[in-house]
Design a protein around this nucleic acid. Structure first.
Lengths: 212, 212
DNA sequence: AGAATAGTGTCTGTGAGACATTATGGT
DNA sequence: ACCATAATGTCTCACAGACACTATTCT
């Protein structure tokens, strides 16, 4: 058993005031044929990003995954930190720091509990409490910048996939059409052709790729 | 006086375990004629980034400024959050989350207490405790990316300044020479010419600029 | 055959990089 | 007079954007 640390005033760290620490997460996904969307959970009559308080000695990323599982029935993947919200008046329950996170999850892994949660296009999220709109904006900016130069870094597509499928995904995330030629030139060197061709599609069959 | 919040188990937030929260800051500056440098403070026989524990209801940025003032006699400017370090075994004094920050401070504002602190080139920082090398790497990456497209965003130069002075500053921060033509083309549209000329220099006097 | 899509070839304007030339002060 | 630097002009190459054309499959 480790000795409790004492400072020069013979006090332990726990003798000083400490904040509660929470995590709040923007879970982004792309439903088939739909726009870039975010997971919201209900508390009372209010919709918000899922979050929870940090348990003792728990890692932030683990708290995020736990909150997604218990608050929305969702198995998350790899949360990324965005920002710490530290306004002492932000939460009327007390002094709470919130570490905002982003998690990008393939639609196929999202089997949400519809009594607890819903998935809406990020443009339709409306006004969220606790500065969650700011988190959402940062999350969207973050996923857009990561998709600008790299083919599907979050693995939203099952592979193999065609260049067209990849481009449509990137356009959904960017929220605007992309140029076919430029997209191809930027992405193809970063992909590995499987040698297979897509079947059952209209037109000339496209080559299938996987992330390199 | 506000009523203390009670959850469904009739417990206050303070009835649950909470971490101590610290801030650690990479203070970057450019001494005259020297390389991009970082402020280190001594604790015992060890050099580390300055940091402190968060006081009750204190903002993170305020804790950063307070720690710079008291631990190094430095008046900081505008700290930016980088990352939260949350490894529960990171600090042997107990369960401590550390929010890493970056602050870029002009050399002229750094009147450090030399018995407490020193300023060394970032390449000479050596091995730092508590994952502080990782903070330093992120801080350097952050200032480099902010200086890549914008003229002296942190205001390290007194203005007015010449394009040459600006380029030398950017080269110091980038850690590599920049191309004169490209630099000029990128920066000049973002600057406001004062109409004055530099005096007392060798060669044709340069125009003086201020940030637009 | 025709529609639809994939894949390839090629033209052009823009801008980065490079270099040359002129301007203007100090030594 | 000479040197050092600023400021400006211009050439070239690479590449983004654009468009045309061919290839291949399904209906």
């Amino acid at each position: 058993m480790m000795e409790t640390y004492r400072d020069s005033h013979d006090r332990a760290l726990t003798d000083y005031p400490r904040p509660s620490v929470a995590v709040d997460t923007a879970v982004l996904t792309v439903p088939p044929g739909a726009a870039l969307s975010v997971l919201l959970v209900r508390t009372g009559d209010e919709w918000r990003l899922p979050g929870t308080f940090l348990h003792e000695r728990e890692r932030l990323a683990d708290a995020v995954l736990r909150s997604l599982q218990t608050k929305a029935g969702v198995s998350g993947l790899s949360p990324r930190q965005l920002h710490v919200f530290d306004d002492p008046a932000r939460d009327n329950r007390g002094w709470v720091l919130s570490v905002a996170h982003l998690d990008v999850v393939p639609w196929s892994r999202l089997t949400i509990d519809e009594s607890l949660a819903k998935i809406v296009p990020v443009t339709d999220a409306g006004a969220l409490p606790y500065g969650h709109n700011e988190i959402l904006d940062q999350a969207v900016a973050s996923i857009r910048s990561s998709y600008a130069t790299t083919p599907d870094p979050a693995g939203l597509l099952e592979h193999p996939f065609t260049l067209r499928q990849l481009q449509q995904l990137h356009e959904t995330i960017a929220g605007e059409p992309l140029m076919r030629d430029s997209f191809r030139r930027a992405m193809e060197p970063q992909l590995a052709a499987t040698g297979e061709l897509a079947a059952g599609t209209v037109g000339k069959p496209a080559r299938l790729f996987a992330r390199a």
